[in-house]
């Protein structure tokens, strides 16, 4: 039998059957337990698959990576050697610096443009279509988005026919073609990569902000207008403060996204031209250079950067649970 057909059968029938079989099986297994203890045991049987996956795929490897960051490839303890490498290399601290640029600009652009668009689109009749257009890039892969934008940024030497959209416009206006990807002066190319990521993620911010915007009571806005406030004042003193918690949510999600940025850098520059970021640097050190200790340090740095955001999110979650 064609191995692909076997895989297809496993995929469509085998996997769901195993999962349903497990949970039905728990009830059978519980018959072996004394009746008064069943209610105590049952939740753990239901939780078992999830907890097992989380332990194996998130908890155990995080501890493993922490240990690895103090070892070389042979598993020998090397103290802080890998960390001092990190502090003194362009692939280490240099990529962290680029990540900080990402971390500032990506939330700023996605929240800023997302907010602008959400507020404006609320006033036009073609709202649904307009939102779909901004939202669309979120559905495609960062790989495809990178190809789309490599084509926008394509560069030919001056004099040759510019087939890249942006350089054709620039040449058409009489300017010299710009090397969007290769020019690292003032981090210009990193900025261009962030533009691509913002193009993908602005729709995310816009949709969430728009939902929050619709939740603001129209009476409240109307009352302010009756009292003589103009649109700008209404926005500044009522809409914006009410949206602030939502904007914070979007910004934290974007900060995490910026820290984890990988695909776009991997496909568009692979970290060349001074655009390296931590996630891509880690991939390079693990797989191209085969240095697990340095790869582990990069992963740990990424996690340490995420922890404050995580703490913030959990605290907010607990505050919400208290209200519920």
């Amino acid at each position: 039998m064609d191995p692909r057909l076997v895989t297809a059968i496993i995929v469509v029938i085998g996997v769901p059957a195993v999962l349903v079989g497990y949970i039905v099986g728990t009830e059978q297994a519980l018959r072996l337990v004394p009746e008064r203890r069943r209610a105590t045991v049952r939740p753990w049987l239901w939780l078992f698959p999830a907890l097992a996956f989380l332990l194996v795929y998130l908890v155990y490897p995080t501890i493993g990576t922490l240990i690895q960051s103090f070892e070389n490839n042979a598993g020998k303890f090397v103290g802080f050697n890998n960390y001092s490498w990190f502090l003194n290399s362009s692939d280490g601290i240099g990529s962290l610096f680029n990540n900080i640029i990402w971390l500032v600009l990506l939330p700023a652009i996605t929240v800023g443009v997302g907010l602008l668009f959400a507020v404006l689109v609320d006033r036009v009749r073609y709202e649904t279509i307009a939102k779909s257009v901004i939202f669309l890039p979120l559905a495609i892969s960062a790989t495809a988005a990178s190809v789309i934008w490599l084509f926008m940024f394509a560069y030919q030497p001056p004099g040759a026919a510019q087939t890249g959209t942006l350089n054709a416009i620039i040449s058409g206006l009489g300017g010299a073609p710009v090397a969007f990807i290769a020019n690292s002066t003032f981090k210009f190319n990193t900025l261009m990569l962030i533009v691509v990521m913002s193009w993908m993620w602005t729709g995310f911010g816009m949709v969430i902000i728009s939902a929050a915007l619709k939740g603001i009571s129209p009476e409240l806005l109307e009352a302010a207008r009756v009292d003589g406030a103009n649109e700008l004042e209404v926005f500044r003193h009522i809409t914006f403060p009410l949206l602030l918690p939502t904007l914070t949510v979007v910004a934290t999600v974007m900060i995490i996204t910026a820290l984890k940025a990988f695909d776009i850098v991997y496909v568009m520059t692979n970290g060349n031209f001074d655009t390296q970021v931590i996630a891509n640097s880690m991939y390079t050190w693990m797989f191209t250079n085969g240095n697990f200790g340095r790869g582990a340090v990069l992963a740990i740095v990424l996690m340490i950067a995420v922890i404050p955001v995580m703490a913030f999110n959990i605290r907010r979650f607990q505050a919400q649970e208290a209200i519920r």
Binding site: Y57, P61, T65, F317
Partner: peptide, 25 residues
Amino acid sequence: FPGRNILFVVVVGLLVVPLQTTFIP
């Protein structure tokens, strides 16, 4: 079951463990 809420918070907290941290092990 005992520890239900704490366990749930821990599970949600894992949301922000970067995938990169898990690759080597």
